[in-house]
């Protein structure tokens, strides 16, 4: 073929054509970089929201939970509770009755009662727990400020067991502990104290119920998780301070899937760490930054009922991120 063409092509043309094609190829390769293309080809988490006070926007979102139908509840520092659709569209919002002193930091959908699902909101700075219907109607309120055993200062997170008994992590009165309340809002008992030894807490910021009968507490300022049975007996202690897998830096929130895997939102390490039911670290994702997939001091993590999506309250970035377990987490687990 070349010899055919050579008969009527000026010598040297091939060199020029090659050069021109090379330049063209370079230009097409580089242009996307300059024009802002070149996105990472890894799976991107879905980003919901940006900074603001409108429905669908957030200012330091801290509490997040996912209902069994996929709807999401978010508490942020504007004093609002927002309900979003499973793909992040704002459905409803309401304001806490009082938030001049501070806003709620965590919430939880309670479906222990088969008749109805309600939303428990931990009104941290007002030392109380509020229970709302999904339309935003307040149906129950309990908790009182004080240093007596049945009073609380800063409740942080709440877990509910199958019978509707509530377990509330609490701190600031030098008796950091888990308080146990009945479904009627009446105080029953408590366990734990302030300190560094196993069984003691320093600012526990997360608590989650693992069926059939275990509680895991994120013992935040001790950089560890502690596992108890429902009576308050200490079963296991996991983790230490650090950045390596299996270590934590201010673990704040916990979520558990059907296989018993635990998702930990680490405020200090700006990441989500996944543990298996024995507490062994199996995956870590996130990392500090503003790009999709990166997190800024995340306060909250929640899983869908099927355990296929992970929602993170990406606090400092004023947004939520939805990660796909199959695409984000499973590959990391498989690498182990």
């Amino acid at each position: 073929m070349r010899s055919c063409f050579q008969s009527f092509i000026h010598p040297g043309t091939f060199g020029i054509v090659r050069g021109a094609l090379l330049i063209a190829a370079l230009a097409w390769a580089l242009a996307p970089c300059g024009c802002g293309g070149g996105k990472a080809r890894t799976d991107e988490p879905m980003i919901v929201g940006s900074r603001g006070r409108d429905p669908g926007r957030f200012s330091f979102p801290r509490g997040i939970d996912v209902a069994s139908d996929g709807r999401i509840a978010v508490a942020d520092r504007t004093g609002r509770i927002q309900i979003l659709s499973p793909d992040g569209k704002p459905l409803k919002q309401w304001f806490m009755p009082k938030f001049d002193n501070g806003t709620p930091t965590r919430l939880l959908f309670d479906s222990s009662d088969p008749a109805t699902t309600t939303l428990l909101v931990v009104d941290t700075h007002n030392s109380r727990i509020m229970r709302y219907s999904l339309d935003g109607v307040l149906v129950q309120q309990f908790g009182k400020y004080g240093t007596n055993p049945d009073e609380m200062i800063f409740p942080t997170d709440i877990a509910v067991d199958a019978s509707g008994t509530m377990y509330i992590a609490e701190y600031q009165d030098k008796h950091d502990r888990v308080m146990v309340y009945g479904r009627d809002g009446g105080y029953i008992r408590q366990f734990g104290d302030f300190g560094e030894e196993p069984g003691k807490f320093q600012r526990p910021e997360g608590i989650v119920f693992v069926p059939p009968g275990r509680l895991i507490v994120a013992d935040t300022c001790n950089d560890r998780l502690q596992v108890f049975d429902l009576s308050g007996k200490l079963l296991e202690v996991w983790g230490s301070t650090g950045k390596a897998p299996g270590q934590f830096n201010y673990p704040y929130d916990l979520a558990v899937d059907k296989q018993g895997r635990i998702y930990v939102a680490e405020y200090g390490n700006n990441r989500i760490q996944v543990l298996d039911q024995t507490g062994r670290s199996v995956a870590v994702f996130g990392g500090p930054g503003p790009e999709p997939g990166q997190l800024g001091n995340p306060w909250g993590v929640a899983l869908t009922a099927a355990g296929d999506k992970v929602w993170v309250a990406d606090t400092l970035n004023h947004r939520l991120q939805k990660f796909d377990v199959k695409r984000t987490v499973q590959p990391l687990i498989a690498k182990q």
């Binding site: 092509i9 040297g12 043309t13 054509v17 063209a24």
Partner: peptide, 14 residues
């Protein structure tokens, strides 16, 4: 870019 190629083509390839 294609114009450049066409330009070269016109002059060099008969």
């Amino acid at each position: 870019l294609p114009t450049l190629l066409a330009d070269i083509f016109t002059r060099r390839v008969l």
